[in-house]
Design a protein around this nucleic acid. Sequence first.
DNA 1: CAGTATGA
DNA 2: TCATACTGG
Length: 347
Amino acid sequence: MGVDLGALCVKREAKLSDFSGRVVAIDAFNTLYQFLSTIRQPDGTPLKDHLGRITSHLAGLLYRTVNIIEAGVRPVYVFDGKPHPLKAGTLEGRRAAKEKALIEWNEALEAGDLERAKSKAQATSRLTGEMVGQSKELLSALGLPHIQAPGEGEAQAVHLVRRGDACACASQDFDAMLFGAPLLLRNIAIGGKRKLPGKNAYADVEPEVISLEETLLSLGITREQLVDAAILIGTDFNTGIRGIGPKKALKMIIGNGSLESAMPAIEGDEKYREHLNGISDYGEIRRIFLNPDVTDDYSLEWGAVNEGRAVDMLCGEFHFSKERIVKAVERFSDLKKRSGQKSLFEF
DNA sequence: CAGTATGA
DNA sequence: TCATACTGG
């Protein structure tokens, strides 16, 4: 998902509790996809209820959110709206990749290769409208706000930060930086360990904060130039130019000042000339990132936890273990008692 | 992913 | 007590 700007960013290790008392705008789709991808059995099967409905997203959302709350952070989940027409190619590409992964998942299962099966299964993850609705319902039961973005969720999350309603965005995608997020939180999981794509090796993955200002300063460019570089590399809205990665893109933008000034050099290069259609819409893509479709029509209200509603939904409707869910939901209530407040989130 | 059981 | 393995739905 998104552009990989990892190599260009100034990162700093962080703890979730560094953001204690602050509002963090979380990219809901990105988070839910993460859960759908990782919360699976060794053979790749996701968690399902008695009716065969996938529940991985709900399990992940509940436990992740409890941990965020326990760190004193006030989460607001921001959901994607309508995708921009230029994203159609990316979405079609993902759909095709999922179809292929589904076949390969079954092949791996037949071959008895569990590791490959799980990895292929993860690539089949689909977030449905029903799952989105269920996730919103769970958040409401937990007394947490969620916001519906008109377009890209990340753009709306950044908008919250720019209006002073949140202090940072949380997402695994780097797109938030292109939208202008001053601070981007990545890896806000509790575990800190993640399986490496290689094999049985585990690497520590600590939460990290990326500062847009420090990144731009270290690169010696403006955000507009970062967006231009991203367009060359390729974004969700364009394929970019084959053969140009972060390093060459940056060099071209720094050397020429802007994408249009770099065009003669690109058009004059045989290698790149045939891929010009990959950046043909660059004016519109700039607009998507620099002047995104966002709304001020939202409210951020943290209410009390409705234990009964959360338990009814997860245990009654989806057959989660009552013991586990009650314990998790009570962690919200315990926090309230300790802080002596009616609601943890009252100002 | 996160909780829980296990066992050194 | 802590790292590792397994389970959850």
